[in-house]
């Protein structure tokens, strides 16, 4: 940070390069396989870097042509964006109340909310289905959106309340209180701007959790019109395609690429806070 010497700089970049390698290497093998013909994908004659003539987009073509991916990706996008917005609308006031407002029952509510994070979802799938069926939300995008936005809430609330608490150094809060602000004023003027990175992180986590969510979409829908890409690809992975490694890996690439690209792009547009990550 300060007084950088050339040596520490070298150490830094070597460290980062190793990190990048560790992060990317498993992906690379998947990407390579997805770009080969079916037999080249398993043949030991194919090199680490395959010869040009064994490269092919046939795996992608098979996955894309035969399944209705335009719909799946559109659904994924709608659900993820809506769920991110809704969960932030719930969690920002909620987390603030937990972190700062000293109302009776706060702790009890907080601990029960935190407890929900610990609960493995697999144990509540059937009762949750019952609730959504009762509400008439089975097989609808509304239902999926509501489910996902609520199921990411515990983590966003838990994340945000921690930062809201720490967002104010003692002396700043003191100053705010002396100025005659109420706690809510202090929150909006001081805590929230300082917590912008955390809000950004919470939004990012919500979006990605929504995108990658399998269980609730799987449990709450069965029509192809409301299926998301993650569930569609899960089905492909569980089907006969398992015997065709290039197509299988193409499906994996299609599943993984959008959130990774989204994260990469969000770095530029989300602003100061998250840009710092």
């Amino acid at each position: 940070m300060l007084n950088e010497t050339r040596r520490t700089k070298t150490v830094l970049y070597v460290g980062l390069a190793l990190f990048a390698l560790w992060a990317l290497i498993p992906y690379i093998w998947v990407l390579r396989t997805s770009l080969l013909t079916n037999f080249a994908a398993i043949s030991s004659d194919t090199g680490y870097i395959p010869a040009l003539e064994s490269l092919s987009l046939v795996g992608y073509e098979q996955i894309w042509d035969r399944y209705n991916f335009t719909t799946y990706f559109a659904n994924s996008l709608i659900v993820s964006i809506a769920a991110t917005l809704i969960s932030l609308l719930f969690s920002i006031p909620g987390a603030y109340a937990f972190a700062r407002l000293d109302f009776p029952g706060r702790k009890f509510l907080f601990y029960t909310a935190v407890f929900t994070i610990m609960f493995p979802w697999i144990v509540i799938t059937i009762p949750v289905y019952e609730v959504f069926f009762f509400l008439g939300l089975i097989n609808t995008l509304d239902g999926v959106t509501i489910a996902i936005s609520i199921f990411v809430l515990p983590q966003t609330i838990w994340l945000l309340q921690g930062f809201f608490r720490q967002g104010i150094p003692e002396n700043i809060e003191e100053a705010a209180l002396i100025d005659g602000h109420t706690e809510i004023g202090a929150f909006l003027r001081i805590v929230l701007p300082l917590s912008a990175p955390a809000v950004g992180a919470a939004a990012l986590f919500s979006f990605l959790t929504a995108w990658n969510n399998f269980l609730w979409v799987f449990v709450l829908t069965s029509d192809e019109e409301v299926r998301t890409a993650t569930v569609a690809i899960h089905y492909i992975l569980g089907s006969d395609v398992l015997r065709q490694w290039n197509a299988l890996m193409a499906a994996v690439v299609l599943l993984v690429a959008p959130p990774v690209i989204f994260y990469g792009l969000s770095q530029r547009y989300v602003g100061e806070g998250l840009g710092g990550v």
Binding site: L85, L89, I184, L188, G273
Partner: peptide, 14 residues
């Protein structure tokens, strides 16, 4: 990510 931006500069209490 609107919430972060919207709340950033200024408090409704004001």
């Amino acid at each position: 990510m609107p919430p972060a931006g919207n709340h950033q500069d200024g408090g409704p209490e004001q």
